[in-house]
Amino acid sequence: MNTLALDRLGDEIAELSAHLDAATAHLLDLIREFDTREGWNTGFRSCAAWLSWRVGLDPGAARERVRVARVLGTLPRLAQALARGELSYAKVRALTRVATPETEERLLAVGRAGTADHVERIVRGWRRVDRKAEAAETARRHASRALHVYQDEDGMVTLRGRLAPEVGALLMQALAAAREALYQHARGMDADVTTADVSAETPPMALHARTTAPGWLGQRLDVGWAIDVLHPLAR
Rank of each mutant, 00 (worst) to 15 (best):
R70Q: 12
T100H: 00
L107V: 10
A79I: 02
H208P: 02
W126S: 10
A99I: 04
S46P: 14
I227L: 15
S17G: 03
A143E: 12
D152F: 00
S52I: 02
A191N: 06
M189K: 11
R127K: 08
A181C: 03
Y89A: 08
A143D: 09
A176P: 01
T100K: 02
M205D: 11
W126M: 01
R235A: 12
E15N: 06
D228F: 01
T202D: 10
L107K: 00
W50S: 03
A181S: 04
A209K: 06
R54S: 05
R162Q: 09
G60Y: 03
D21Q: 02
T96Q: 00
R187S: 02
E180A: 12
L57S: 06
V110A: 09
V71Q: 11
W50Y: 10
T202Y: 07
T194R: 15
A116K: 01
A178G: 13
V68H: 05
T115Q: 08
S46E: 05
Q151A: 13
A164L: 14
L27V: 07
R145H: 06
A48I: 09
A191T: 11
V110T: 11
W216D: 11
T100E: 06
A164K: 06
S17W: 02
A109G: 14
G39P: 15
L16C: 08
T36N: 07
R32W: 05
E15W: 11
